[in-house]
Design a protein around this nucleic acid. Sequence first.
DNA 1: AGAAGGACCAGTGGTCCGTA
DNA 2: AGAAGGACCAGTGGTCCGTA
Lengths: 256, 256
Amino acid sequence: DTTNTLDALSQEGLSEEPVQQEKEAGGSGSGAGGGQTWETVGKKQGRKKKGRASKILTSIEDEDESEGAEEDENGSGGSERQREHPFIVTEPGEVARGKKNGLDYLFHLYEQCREFLIQVQNIAKERGEKCPTKVTNQVFRYAKKAGASYINKPKMRHYVHCYALHCLDEDASNALRRAFKERGENVGAWRQACYKPLVAIAARQGWDIDAIFNAHPRLSIWYVPTKLRQLCHAERSNAAAASISVTGGGAAQLPF
Amino acid sequence: DTTNTLDALSQEGLSEEPVQQEKEAGGSGSGAGGGQTWETVGKKQGRKKKGRASKILTSIEDEDESEGAEEDENGSGGSERQREHPFIVTEPGEVARGKKNGLDYLFHLYEQCREFLIQVQNIAKERGEKCPTKVTNQVFRYAKKAGASYINKPKMRHYVHCYALHCLDEDASNALRRAFKERGENVGAWRQACYKPLVAIAARQGWDIDAIFNAHPRLSIWYVPTKLRQLCHAERSNAAAASISVTGGGAAQLPF
DNA sequence: AGAAGGACCAGTGGTCCGTA
DNA sequence: AGAAGGACCAGTGGTCCGTA
């Protein structure tokens, strides 16, 4: 069972108690959320409205009523709601120390999302409903309900292309991780650096990044990130222009 | 060239003048809208706000400014904006008489949408943008801009399953049309009757209506209609229940 | 400064219902 | 009554930016 091993890669310290939240009825699929899941220490963060103008005021519908007069629901003392620890660049197999999470853990989150998607698909099939082929809002909602509160859309979308490199060329991905760790680069720099080898892969395969994603069983469930798509397009145009300037500009460039 | 033949199946009388509207730039695909397209006689229908409460008031953004002080833009006399003629049940090859449209014309609209989709896809590929695989809102918008004002989403969605039967079992579809024409049934009755043979086809192919749509090159670009999906699901449950009551209820029913 | 994620927003899929 | 389609609406994909 790799689940506990990998979960252990997430540096805890936010909460000590494994929490098994309500599962959506009918979940018959493979075991995402089947292992232990942890929840960050929770306390009502007050009704403090965020700064942004809220035109649509997303209403009260799902608030669990028990407003101000509420104890500390998980009994662990009045700590504030916290975020996941930030990622640091780790080598393959390396566990992050301190209040950090490593990249194996990051990639594990993508596998978990895949398992949640499979569960959502199974439920949809049983019910004869539309069956998602990608990790959609519905899947993120399901993951949250299943207790995986550490999974969220902005985070997963942010690192998709890093996961893509890991899927498509694990050796190159590992080498990049080692190089960036050695140089002491931060996660943002590593993340940026993941684009280049992906564009090179696309170049070798006719520039069709969608086809590349779709051909890979674990990657096909993720939307191609906009920036990756744009980089591939820009590079293809560059390559085509260079090719024309070399050949003197023949016909039949840019085959579709 | 079948385009003009089929276009002729649409009973005109709304407008005499072929109108070639602005094409979206870069449209390099096959020839939807390449033949003649007609526009219904147009006249500003005034700003009369519709009855429904309009929370979002879709604003002025694209109105072509020239408000009240406007001539009759297509010079054909002040007639009112009209709708397409209603469909009637026709046999294969039969042209509808009077202010009616026949079913060959209906199915031709689906082929036109497919051609518009191909154009949208070609543009997207050229630009390195996301490429739709289905007839989306974007495609309907494109069709309208290309002058095919007679194509709209509610209509196309309404008859998708009729087109599906035409694609999947043309003989059955033709037989149904002849039978319903002979009985003098209206379009609504024919449309309802198209569900049953489709469910029978699904039954023969393991109940996976999505797979059936996706396996057909001209049908795969259309979303499976909700009602058809529900009917297939309900019938599968019925069939499974019957099978259990016959077999006495074994294991391994409802294979997914 | 670097990073996590709540919340927003433009445009979608789906179809109702006022219209002809 | 039967039918065509403008317009609506809940929930989506995408990501900004106030937060820690």
